[in-house]
Computed example of a mutant assay.
Amino acid sequence: MTVGKATASTVIESEEQRDLRAAVARLGARHGAEHERAALWAEAGRLGYLGVNLPEEYGGGGRGIAELSIVLEELGAAGCPLLLLVVSPAICGTVIARFGTEEQKRRWLPGLADGTASMAFGITEPDAGSNAHRITTTARRGADGGWTLNGRKVFVSGVDIADATLIVGRTEDARTGRLKPCLFVVPRDARGFGRSLIDMELHAVEKQFELTLDDVRLPADALVGDEDAGLQQLFAGLNPERIMTAAFAIGMGRHALGKAVAYAGQRAVWDTPIGAHQAVAHPLAQAHIELELARLMMQKAARLYDAGEDAAAGEAANMAKYAAGEACVRTVDQAVQTLGGNGLTREYGLGRLITASRVARIAPVSREMILNYVSHQSLGLPKSY
Results as ranks from 00 to 15, higher is better:
Met319Phe: 09
Thr138Leu: 06
Ala97Asp: 02
Glu172Arg: 07
Gln334Phe: 07
Asn239Arg: 13
Ala363Val: 15
Gly146Leu: 10
Leu202Asp: 09
Leu50Pro: 14
Pro110Asp: 01
Ala29Trp: 12
Ala236Cys: 08
Arg267Cys: 13
Val52Asn: 03
Glu206Trp: 06
Asp214Lys: 14
Val86Asp: 01
Ala22Asn: 05
Gly325Asp: 06
Ala246Gln: 09
Ala256Ile: 12
Ser69Asp: 07
Leu149Val: 14
Arg242Ile: 12
Ala276Phe: 15
Gly251Asn: 03
Leu82His: 00
Val24Phe: 10
Ala44Gly: 12
Gly151Phe: 11
Ile243Pro: 11
Ile12Trp: 11
Arg191Glu: 15
Ala281Tyr: 10
Gly48Lys: 05
Leu20Cys: 02
Leu379Thr: 07
Ala313Gln: 06
Val224Ala: 02
Tyr373Met: 10
Ala313Lys: 04
Gly158Asn: 14
Glu309Phe: 08
Asn53Trp: 10
Arg195Cys: 07
Gly32Gln: 02
Ala323Asp: 11
Leu20Ile: 13
Leu68His: 05
Asn150Pro: 10
Leu344Cys: 05
Leu304Pro: 09
Asp19Glu: 11
Ala287Pro: 09
Asp214Thr: 15
Ser375Pro: 10
Thr124His: 07
Val24Asn: 10
Leu47Asn: 12
Gly380Asn: 12
Glu172Cys: 03
Trp270Gly: 00
Gln104Met: 04
Leu223Thr: 12
Arg26Gln: 15
Leu211His: 03
Phe235Pro: 07
Ser88Pro: 14
Ile135Asp: 01
Val87Arg: 03
Thr136Glu: 13
Arg242Asp: 12
Gly60Ile: 14
Thr212Glu: 13
Arg175Val: 11
Leu197Tyr: 10
Ile91Trp: 01
Val336Phe: 03
Met369Arg: 13
Glu73Gly: 01
Gly60Asn: 06
Ala139Arg: 08
Asp199Asn: 08
Asp199Pro: 12
Ala320Trp: 09
Gly79Arg: 01
Ala268Ser: 10
